[in-house]
């Protein structure tokens, strides 16, 4: 292969990885946010994002008798625009996230066995709910970004689609806004106080339970945004988030499950590594990359148990 063609192919693979990387990063950040504030590993995060994608489909379908629950939208009659559908799904996901924290997670009182059990219960419940109401078949959902064959840049011979750029920038913007809120607002300060020391935060008068509930809502909303945006790429189906959840969990461990910034970096790192491995290593196809992610997870945890955080930051739980 001529050198320029090899470079073009490499660039193309890097560009292709960006969409997946954004989805992995969003899930990883959501998982990290919940874990650092509550110590709960939310194994249902992927399913919540999948449900959000279905909610977006309902809004975008309007009063379509072929889509479950869309009859509830009869007063609105016409289908919603794609962006409005995604925003609607994010809002409903956030409300659902807060509700689940209040009704399912809070009664577990931090005991890890029942809490993990509860998140797995939600994992099954959401999955079976979607299968029974929407069926197992795929639903199509348009991307909110231009997707014509001319909607692209050509860089070094490789095609960078507007869709990929839009998805990546939207996810980065959403995560950036969250980071800004954490750093500059009172609720952000309260959230940081709780992640640092929950008991001291409570003694200072911070309403810990409300802030944790808000954290779940934001994490669910972020996962919902990932679900809505990636739905245009993957098509909406009950199993759409299984792979993404594993990569999201693996990415989150790079930040020791506590650092959203490193989880974000981990999401892109895993996506790039996945695409490059599938492209250049003969015996690794796109399915087997999942196994590679598991292998990486074991290696990372063996070599750097606290992820890429410094040991001091990991001990203090202050990695950002």
């Amino acid at each position: 292969m001529p050198q320029s063609a090899a470079v073009t192919l490499f660039l193309q693979r890097v560009f292709d990885a960006m969409s997946n990387g954004s989805a992995y990063a969003a899930l990883a950040v959501a998982i990290s946010m919940v874990f650092r504030s509550t110590g709960v590993l939310n194994l249902a995060q992927g399913q919540m994002a999948m449900l959000s994608a279905y909610i977006a489909v309902i809004f975008a379908s309007g009063a379509d008798p072929g889509v479950a629950f869309s009859g509830w939208l009869t007063p609105f009659a016409t289908p919603w625009p794609i962006w409005a559908s995604i925003v609607g799904a994010v809002v409903i996901s956030a409300v659902l996230g807060a509700l689940l924290e209040y009704t399912v997670i809070r009664p577990m009182h931090g005991d890890p066995v029942p809490t993990i059990g509860a998140t797995l219960g939600l994992y099954l419940l959401i999955g079976v709910f979607v299968v029974k109401h929407f069926g197992g078949r795929q639903r199509f959902f348009d991307s909110p970004f231009p997707q014509e064959h001319t909607d692209r840049f050509v860089i070094g011979g490789a095609r960078l689609w507007f869709d990929t750029i839009g998805l990546t920038l939207t996810m980065l913007a959403a995560i950036g806004v969250l980071a800004l809120i954490q750093r500059t607002t009172k609720i952000g300060l309260a959230f940081r106080a709780i992640t640092s020391n929950r008991d001291s935060a409570a003694l200072l008068g911070i309403r810990v339970e409300q802030v944790v509930m808000a954290g779940w809502a934001v994490a669910a909303g972020l996962g919902g945004l990932a679900g809505g945006l990636i739905a245009g790429e993957l098509n909406v189906r009950p199993s759409m988030m299984e792979r993404l959840l594993i990569f999201g969990l693996a990415a989150a461990t790079l930040g020791g499950l506590r650092s959203p910034a490193l989880a974000l970096a981990g999401g892109y790192l895993f996506a790039f590594a996945e695409t490059i491995m599938a492209g250049y290593v003969g015996f690794i196809d796109s399915q087997v990359t999942l196994v590679w992610a598991l292998g990486m997870l074991i290696v990372v945890l063996s070599v750097r148990p606290s992820g890429l955080l410094s040991r001091k930051a990991a001990r203090q739980g202050l990695g950002t």
Partner: peptide, 12 residues
């Protein structure tokens, strides 16, 4: 799912 949620709630 119900079994998991009920058992988890009882243990919590």
């Amino acid at each position: 799912a119900v079994l998991l949620l009920v058992a988890a709630y009882a243990r919590g």
